[in-house]
């Protein structure tokens, strides 16, 4: 169990520090993301992976993007952070056109890709990988200093993986690697967090603790968070808004408060995974 649990009592001070440390400007912002009639097509493909996407996300929102496999959820995240250029339409993040200012925008976005597993022979320690998350924000020609290292160590401690810092990344379990990737995304102190199926490899204990840690980040620091999942049972009870996608299109975009039975409807429409937690199965 080494490194697998988060000791809540010992982390109270750390979390307070984390709250202080983060995002002074984040709560001031509106319109964090704006997509206008966006189409994104992969190279060599004729059919767009997302079509006619219009989406506005305000600051401090906590959104889940749901949909079956190949619905276009990952494409949506990668279009938002500019990794995939849209073939049509406009993408603005923090008020900036992602096509023109992608690098600058990405320095403020924490991104956890789907199923990112490192080969066991790869010559990178877990600490190397987490620290890399800060490199863009640190900027060119400056090396990470002790302050950066302390910050990263603190995040790893919060996620309960600090003891694994010097082990080769590829030798860690899938769940441990996933926590490291979350730590990496948080290392740059992002204003916007994009998580693509971030809990899929976690053990049962971590599946409860890591989402509640992310919920606290949202509540206490006002971080805007978008989580992609194909599993409705993973949706946090604190989630405010659901965007459902199918076949590259947005089929629903609603606040849960206004549609309490939305999850049940989605389950019936999309045939997605769900647990008894919501009394739907």
């Amino acid at each position: 169990m080494r490194g697998n649990t988060i000791s809540q009592s010992s982390n109270t001070n750390l979390e307070a520090e984390w709250s202080q440390m983060l995002f002074e400007g984040a709560t001031q912002m509106h319109d964090v993301i704006r997509l206008e009639n966006v189409y994104t097509t992969y190279e060599g493909e004729k059919r767009p992976a997302i079509r006619n996407m219009n989406l506005t996300v305000n600051s401090n929102e906590f959104i889940y993007v749901v949909g079956p496999n190949a619905a276009g959820k990952t494409t949506l995240l990668e279009t938002i952070n500019g990794l995939l250029p849209p073939s049509r339409g406009k993408v603005y993040v923090f008020g900036q056109d992602v096509r023109k200012n992608g690098r600058k925008v990405r320095c403020q976005i924490g991104y956890v890709p789907q199923d990112f597993i490192v080969d066991p022979g790869e010559p990178y320690t877990a600490l190397d990988v987490v620290l890399m998350g800060m490199y863009g924000k640190i900027g060119i020609l400056r090396k990470p200093d002790r302050r950066d290292l302390n910050k990263v160590t603190r995040i790893m401690k919060l996620l309960g993986v600090d003891e694994l810092a010097n082990r080769p990344m590829g030798k860690l379990s899938g769940g441990q690697q996933q926590k490291m990737m979350i730590a990496r995304a948080l290392a740059k102190e992002p204003k916007l967090l994009l998580l693509d199926e971030p809990f899929s490899n976690l053990d049962i204990d971590s599946r409860q603790r890591i989402p509640s840690f992310i919920e606290r980040l949202h509540e206490e620091n006002g971080m805007t968070i978008i989580i992609v999942t194909h599993n409705i049972s993973e949706i946090s009870k604190r989630c405010e808004r659901i965007v459902a996608m199918d076949n590259g299109e947005k089929i629903t975009d609603e606040k849960l408060m206004e549609r309490p039975f939305l999850l049940k409807e989605l389950y019936q429409i999309l045939g997605m995974e769900v647990s008894s937690r919501y009394g739907l199965s």
Binding site: I109, Y111, F116, M132, M134, Y135, G136
Partner: peptide, 10 residues
């Protein structure tokens, strides 16, 4: 380590 992730990190 990974070109796409490096790009995502700015």
């Amino acid at each position: 380590f990974d070109r796409k992730l490096a790009e995502a990190d700015g």
